[in-house]
Design a protein around this nucleic acid. Sequence first.
DNA 1: CGCATCGTTGAATTCGATCAAAGAAGGTGG
DNA 2: CCACCTTCTTTGATCGAATTCAACGATGCG
Lengths: 218, 218
Amino acid sequence: MRAVCMPDGLSAEELSRLDEIICLSRRVSRGEALYRSGDTFSNLYAVRAGSFKTVVTHDDGREQVTGFAIAGEPLGLDGISDESHGCDAIALEDSIVCVIPFHLLEMLCRESRAVQRHVHRMMSSEIVRESALMMLLGNMRADERVATFLLGLSKRLEARGYSASEFNLRMTRDELGSYLGMKLETVSRTFSKLQRQALISTQGKSVRLLDTDGLRRV
Amino acid sequence: MRAVCMPDGLSAEELSRLDEIICLSRRVSRGEALYRSGDTFSNLYAVRAGSFKTVVTHDDGREQVTGFAIAGEPLGLDGISDESHGCDAIALEDSIVCVIPFHLLEMLCRESRAVQRHVHRMMSSEIVRESALMMLLGNMRADERVATFLLGLSKRLEARGYSASEFNLRMTRDELGSYLGMKLETVSRTFSKLQRQALISTQGKSVRLLDTDGLRRV
DNA sequence: CGCATCGTTGAATTCGATCAAAGAAGGTGG
DNA sequence: CCACCTTCTTTGATCGAATTCAACGATGCG
């Protein structure tokens, strides 16, 4: 698991130093917040089991889901800039996270080039991830959005050792719609449409990808 | 200028070390690329004069403007994750940037807690900035998007010592539309509408904010 | 000065939102 | 363990905002 959060290129000693600081893990039950917007930032997290959504609340009360994190993925990077979190991280199911005290990680960064590089990459990946999402929100039509989301999730699941073609969505249609910038009804209709086109088959939250090339062509 | 890119909390020595590594500046003329997607990442940049857009090109050739950088703002953070840039940075007018070799900055990070913190904040701010943009793209209607953009730009200009209420847009309606997830005609219509509502006055690229509270209420 | 790019406006169309209602799933307490 | 209630999902009908297509006017660069 640590290898997942903190990949290759680290020496045995660096890994053991990492082990020392990631001593704590925390359970978060379904619907509970790992952290909330405004909370003081002190830890990064890595999802060990389960999944989360991150939600930004706008001044006027409108909410938007800005991401989903599955096992093996980092959480909390948004908090670094001003020492407080900018979003809520809510468990979509009973979950467990590794707690990584950020000041210790920073310390390690100063000692190890490899650790430093890894942390920088994690943060920059987040920036790249969001660029892709902006493209989705800015340019794509409903069915392209859903297809892109499914292909992306499939890839992430595969990278973690799960099936790439058959999986359960942990979020509701409403949460997915919020993430993809569309209403829950449109999400539902789009699933039905993709199923009619024999690109996927769905049954509630369980999804099977039938024709990934077709999905890519949208 | 360096104080703008690299703010407070740094000791005299840290500042002078920074000075040493930011020795180079580079001119980029209008329409020219500072870097392109795929270019090897080796430097961060800070806009010293002028302005830039960053553009992501999708697999299928569609392009999206993902940001605008004005004087005093950093550029190139997207490249850190995989050592190559993920977007093009194109000058909107003849511009000058400070060149910050990233490996030197990394070195400095390892030596100085304050520098490290500043770099982390810069990266995390980028993440937060993109969250806000996602909210805009996902949830807002055309006039809200334009109003939000104008208020945000006004604030950034003010922070750099320019007028908050009167400025020239450096980008075309098309580029702005790409950024805001709408067509150039819609951008144009929206400007006209806001002008009819006496919230702004525009004349081509020059904009004056007449009623910022009104704009905030959308 | 002329040509190309950029901006504005109008009319028709389309896609997704909204309103509405009914059916499925899931968790809780009796 | 089942019934009930809540939450979630699906589907239909209508509506509205933004896109598309089109034409013209303005701007600015070479």
